[in-house]
C-alpha cells in the first residue's frame, strides 16, 4: 500500500536558502542544514533543494551544501537545478545527495536521463516537468512542456514526454503546473492524474498548494505518491505535521509524525 510522502521544497542560491521562513528557535533562516533539521523534526519524508544559483562557477557551493546536509540530517534529499552533465550529477551524489532532478537539461538533451540512470540507477534520477494547459493542435494531451522557469514553450506534449523519459530511465516524475504555481488554488489535478496514469513510476505533485486541504486531492484525485509544497511551509503557515494530519484525515496513509 502506498504511503504518501510529504516533501518541502527549498530554493537555494549559492548554498543559502532563500525566501521567507519564520520559525521560532532558528538561528539562521538561510542555513540549509538548520532548516532541513526543522523539517525532519516535523516529519518531512524527503526534502528537495532547488538550486537557483545563476552562475555555473558558483555551484560548488551547492555541492558543499549537499555535503553539510548529508552530515547532519538523515532523511533522503534531492537536488535540482543546473545539472547538465553526468559529472554534475556525480558530484552531488558523491557529496551525499540521494537523487538529482533534471528539467530543462533533459529537454535540451534527453540522453542525459539515460546517462544518469545507467551510471547511478533510476532510483536517483528524477525528471521534473514544468507543464501548462494548451489547446495547440497536435498536443493531444492538452498539456505542453515549458522550459526556462516556465517562460518558454517547447511544443512537446507533456504525456508523450514523461513516457519517453521513463523509457530512458527516469525513476520518478515531478509534475509542476505553471498555471497553478504561486496561485494557491491547489494542484492541477487533471495534469497530475494524466501523468500518473501514463507512467508506472512514483509521481510528485507540485505547484499551487495554498493550504493543508490541498494535499490529499493530489494523492487521491491526482494519483501522486508524493506531495510537494514550498511557501506554506517556509512562511510557517502550516507544518509538515499538520499537512500529514490533514492527509490522514482524508484517508491517505502517511508516516505519522513522531
Amino acid at each position: 500500500m502506498t504511503v504518501v510522502r510529504v516533501i518541502p521544497c527549498l530554493d537555494v542560491d549559492q548554498g543559502r536558502v532563500v525566501k521567507g521562513v519564520n520559525f521560532v528557535d532558528i538561528v539562521d533562516a538561510g542555513d540549509p542544514v538548520e532548516l532541513a533539521a526543522v523539517y525532519d523534526q516535523q516529519g518531512a519524508d524527503e526534502l528537495i533543494f532547488l538550486d537557483i544559483t545563476a552562475s555555473h562557477e558558483r555551484r560548488d557551493t551547492t555541492v558543499e551544501m549537499a555535503r553539510a546536509v548529508a552530515e547532519q540530517v538523515f532523511i533522503p534529499f534531492t537536488i535540482g537545478g543546473g545539472i547538465r552533465t553526468v559529472d554534475d550529477a556525480r558530484r552531488l551524489l558523491r557529496a551525499g545527495a540521494d537523487k538529482v532532478s533534471i528539467n530543462s537539461a533533459a529537454v535540451a538533451r534527453p540522453e542525459l536521463v539515460a546517462e544518469i540512470a545507467d551510471e547511478f540507477g533510476s532510483q536517483c534520477c528524477v525528471v521534473a516537468i514544468d507543464a501548462k494547459r494548451t489547446d495547440t493542435p497536435g498536443l493531444d494531451s492538452g498539456f505542453e512542456i515549458f522550459v526556462k522557469g516556465g517562460r518558454e514553450g517547447t511544443g512537446i506534449d507533456a504525456i508523450e514526454w514523461v513516457r519517453k523519459v521513463v523509457d530512458l530511465g527516469a525513476g520518478e516524475i515531478m509534475v509542476n503546473s505553471i498555471d497553478r504555481d504561486g496561485t494557491r488554488d491547489g494542484y492541477d489535478l487533471e495534469m497530475t492524474r494524466a501523468v500518473a496514469d501514463a507512467v508506472r513510476v512514483p509521481v510528485i505533485a507540485s505547484g499551487g498548494v495554498g493550504g493543508v486541504e490541498d494535499f490529499a486531492p493530489g494523492a487521491i484525485e491526482g494519483g501522486a505518491t508524493a506531495v510537494l509544497a514550498a511557501s506554506i511551509f517556509h512562511f510557517g503557515e502550516a507544518s509538515v505535521a499538520e499537512a500529514k494530519t490533514a492527509l490522514a484525515a482524508s484517508g491517505v496513509r502517511v508516516r505519522p509524525p513522531e
Binding site: T2, V3, V4, R5, D45, S122, Q123, G171, E172, R200, V201, P202, T225, R255
Partner: peptide
C-alpha cells in the same frame, strides 16, 4: 508502483 520509494512500517 516500482520502485517502492517511500517510508514503510
Amino acid at each position: 508502483i516500482r520502485p517502492q520509494m517511500q517510508w514503510n512500517q
